[in-house]
Design a binder for these strands. Structure first.
Lengths: 161, 161
DNA sequence: CGGGGATATTTGCAAACGCATTTAAATCTG
DNA sequence: CAGATTTAAATGCGTTTGCAAATATCCCCG
């Protein structure tokens, strides 16, 4: 027998029962990244970029020539999805696939000049979303936060990249 | 003219170029939540639960009788996706939809006893994934981290729920 | 050094997703 | 208070996704 009392619309204060959720890190992180990613996705949509394409481009602007499998991990995009995103990026001349020198099963991915230029035009939007997220949070607190994230990343990657 | 030097397989140390990424909070958060959600999704798959269904159930275990629109925000699931997830959960008798008393456009969602019981069996898995994520991070640091997340959540929700 | 298993990537296909639209009801406005 | 606008939820439909299988290559071991 659960509490079946009639639903009462409540003030837009945080609800009592939500207090649990808003102290739960995974919940907060999903909420935050959900909105961050959605807002970025909306901005990129007009530029013909999907989230997987944008992420691949972002990672490639920093890491030169990863294997597709590695890029999949770094960009947090499933391999088959990434494979198709790369098809499109290559079609647009933003990246280039190149057979690995020593393992001919493997493919390395490189960003082209056009791809890098394209990403430069995207970057300000991403930086803006980032800054919005951290507004009012002092540098010292930001550093500590990133430090904790790094520990968490180390925890979750079992013995992978 | 970018550096087109031949690709060299590198040791599985963090790559030089990655240092930028691993100091960038949104990147780290996407990496961490990507794996957290994937591992949870894999565990739930065997139990007939998708991510939207699991999230809805989790939120409903804490918040009683939200509007579907509110549940959509809390559970970070797109409204149309949530609508269909609720169809399934209702079909399985885990939740119940009920017309709002004062606004007959709106629907409130309640978890059933069966739904609550089902969620109780799920919860240990979620807690385990959570604990794995925070392994080795002391309580004080965890608290500070959650505090920062709460500020971030306040930043990104414009003037919504 | 040949065969069995592992690994890298792509592709087929069914399911899931999300945008846009629809339906229904509430609210605002003159 | 009628008509126009906004809001809540469901649904139609084309696109995207991701699992699993296919393909190709590598590596290990007897």
């Amino acid at each position: 027998m659960t509490d079946q009392s009639p639903p009462k619309p409540q003030p837009d204060q945080p609800r009592l029962g939500e207090i649990g959720l808003t102290n739960y890190a995974p919940y907060l992180m999903n909420r935050i990244m959900g909105r961050y990613n959605a807002s970025l996705r909306d901005e990129m949509a007009g530029l013909g970029l999907t989230t997987p394409k944008m992420r691949a481009l972002a990672v490639l602007s920093v890491i030169d020539g990863p294997l597709i499998r590695e890029l999949s991990v770094y960009s947090v995009v499933e391999q088959s999805t990434l494979s198709r995103a790369l098809d499109q990026l290559a079609g647009d001349g933003l990246i280039r696939r190149e057979a690995d020198a020593v393992d001919s099963r493997a493919t390395r991915v490189f960003i082209t000049e056009a791809g890098r230029a394209h990403f430069e035009t995207l970057w300000p939007r991403m930086a803006e979303a980032h800054e919005r997220m951290f507004r009012g949070i002092p540098p010292e607190e930001r550093r500590a936060f990133v430090g904790t994230l790094q520990k968490m990343l180390a925890n979750i990657r079992k013995h992978e990249i």
